[in-house]
Each structure stands twice: as C-alpha cells, then as structure tokens.
Design a protein around this nucleic acid. Structure first.
Lengths: 195, 195
DNA sequence: GAATTTGTACTGACCGGTCAGTTTAAACGG
DNA sequence: CCGTTTAAACTGACCGGTCAGTACAAATTC
C-alpha cells in the first residue's frame, strides 16, 4: 500500500500492537500504563509517542487493525464457501487466535459514551453487515423462522459468538475448538432449518 | 438479614451503590475516581472510606450486590412459573432495568487474571446454575437436541442474553422490550422443540 | 570518496497533574 | 453518647505526555 513507510516503523508498530493487545486485553485499556506497553514491546516510551499521538490513539488504531483482520478473514472465508456456517467457523477461529482482542472488544463495545464509541459503532457495523449478507441469503430462501428480523439476528449472532468464544477460553478451556464449533453449529443449523 | 446495621448506613450504602453503578458501568471501574462517586452520591469522600475498605472493595461489593438481586429475581420468577421462558423473560427485564450493571459485568467477567476474576467466577456460577436447572428439565424431557451439553448451553444462554440486552440498549434503543423478548423467545423455543 | 548535512526512528530522564487514601476536628442524629 | 457523616487539607505514588539528544543511513557537497 502506502510506499512512503519504512519497514522499520511498520515492524515497530506491529510490536506495539502485539504488546498493547496482550496487556490491554487482559487488564483493560484504562489500567495499563504506557510504560508497561513500551516495556512489553521492548521499546522506549518515546517511541510510542513518536508513532502515535496518544495512548488513546494507540488503542483506537489497535481496534481498527483488529477489525480489519477479522473482516478480511470473513471475506475470504465467504469466498471459499458461501455459507453461514463457514462464516461462523471462521469467526470462532479468529476469536480462538486473538482472545485478547475479544476481551478488549467486549469491554469497550457497549460503553455508552465511551471514548471509542463512535469508532466502535462503525467497526461493529463492518462485521455485522458481513453476517447480515449470509442471513439475508437464508431469509430469501425462506429458511429463517418468521418473526426473526435479519438485522437483529445478525447483531445477536455476532455478539453471541463473541461471548461463547470468551466463555470457552476463560471458563471451559478443556473443551476443544471442534467441540465448541459443533455446539454452535447445532444452534445455527437449528436456526436455518426451523419451520 | 443482619440486624445490627442501622438504617442510616444501609441508606448510605445504597446511595453509593447507585452512584458507583452508574459511573462505573458507563466509564469503567478504572477510570472513575472516588471523588466522582462521592459527588454523584451526594456524600463526603470520607464516608466512602468509612463504609468500604477501598475503591476495589466498593466495586466488589457492588458486584455481589447486583448478582444477589438478579439471583433473587430469577428464583422468584421460577417460583411463579417453572419454565425456561419465564427465566429468560425475567433476566431480560433485569438487564433492561440495570443496564449499567450489564456493562460492568460484561467488561470484567472475562478478564483473565483480573482483580475480581475469582469473585466473578463464583457469581457467574450462581446465575448459570439457576439457568442449568431449567435446561436440565428440558434435557430430561428429551426436548433438547442431542449433542447439546447442558452446562455449555446454560453458560451460552446467560452470555447471549447479556449481550443481546446490551446491544439492544446501545445500538437498537428504538426496539421495544416486548419485541426483543419475542425475538429471544423464538430462539429459545426453537431450541426447546428442535428435533 | 572523505566530509558534511539531512531526515527518520528511537531513547529515557524528567515534569506536572491526578488520584487513592489519610487525617483531623467538628457536627449530627437516634 | 456513640456510631455515622462532613468538610477540607494533605500526602505521595503513579502516570501521561514532553523534549533534548542519540543513532544511523541516505543524500549532498567539494
């Protein structure tokens, strides 16, 4: 893409994203210090302020970055197999790979006048609209129970997958990913073939 | 309960719970100051430290208090009508009444080594076990699809209701409570009568 | 092609404000 | 009276943000 960025800053930003994601996901954006992020990334504090305007700006960039990855994956999953199930499977895989991002998202997404609420609303829409595309297909095929609104169902499915993944990681780590996926699939299939 | 508490302190604690719930739910435990909570409650800062050992202790008490209310409501709902649907309806009503508590819970519940993780695990179990009771009834009656584990399903249902309620409050406030409840019921009924 | 300049990325000591928690003396109320 | 609350000043650790300076490679100059 932008050819005017050196490989060096890109690498540094990546290190900062990794470090910030780990710490912020675990302990919350407000209680992690910039010094800690710098230490975790193996970088001086000043470097953070060279690359980002503020701590908030770093977190916001992290949010965008993560959603970008998720959206990209969902789109390629759709390309490979155009089904709701493929989407669900991919999303579950993403949360399994980046649990800290799930923790960050879940703790900020519904904070009413939060500092990232505007950004997060937009990002949420990115993902939900992808889910909605698949839901719409089911609906058009008459495979959705009447009374279920596509928009609501999409938002609910997204949120549900998020918490199920989180709950799995935190409270039931002994379950395999396949087990969790199958349980969710059961639910989703039930939805798809309900009368 | 404990008869050795004056009505005065009980009232003060209630004011503090209300104030703390509002602020902490909206902006997160870490970024709310004790002075703000005192101001919101219309109480001197010293009073907070007379009634609670620390800011953390106040939040923890708040967590316990909220879960106690929720559990109490769920139990009386079950007494009135012994069905999963009654439980779901009551839970949705609770989240509608205390949205800030939902925000607080969702942002702390899956924080892996968080300061309240231990307490929260126990509190989560309180609620989930109530849900599990109803799930078990369905399961014994053979009204649950095979392959769905009761424990997992209960945890998932609890989490799902929480995020659906939150998403409703934040992103779709125009929907009526009845609408949301009906959508969820659709899902739950679908689960109950799946083959 | 050595010497010098320029631009970019990074460093870490430092500063000023913020905030949890303390202290105290006095008032309140049941 | 005694348990509770108030008001206000104070402490000190902590933390976001700053800034003068370093490193170094790629131009630029002579």
């Amino acid at each position: 893409m932008s050819a005017h960025k050196s490989a060096r800053t890109t690498a540094t930003k990546q290190k900062l994203f990794d470090a910030a994601l780990k710490l912020v996901g675990e302990r919350g954006a407000a209680s992690v210090t910039v010094d800690e992020i710098a230490a975790e990334a193996g970088v001086a504090k000043g470097t953070i302020y060279y690359n980002f305007a503020s701590k908030d700006a770093l977190v916001e960039a992290l949010l965008r970055h993560g959603v970008e990855i998720l959206a990209g994956r969902l789109r390629s999953a759709e390309e490979a197999e155009n089904s709701l199930e493929a989407l669900v499977d991919e999303m579950l895989g993403f949360w399994a790979e980046y649990p800290a991002f799930g923790q960050l998202l879940v703790s900020e997404l519904w904070r009413t006048p939060g500092q990232w609420h505007g950004t997060l609303s937009l990002l949420r829409d990115d993902i939900v609209s992808i889910v909605r595309g698949q839901m719409k297909r089911l609906s058009d095929a008459g495979r959705l129970p009447e009374g279920v609104e596509v928009g609501t169902a999409s938002a609910a499915l997204f949120g549900t997958l998020l918490v199920i993944a989180l709950d799995w990681q935190v409270f039931q780590p002994e379950r395999s990913r396949a087990q969790v996926r199958d349980s969710v699939m059961h639910l989703v299939r039930g939805l798809g073939q309900a009368r």
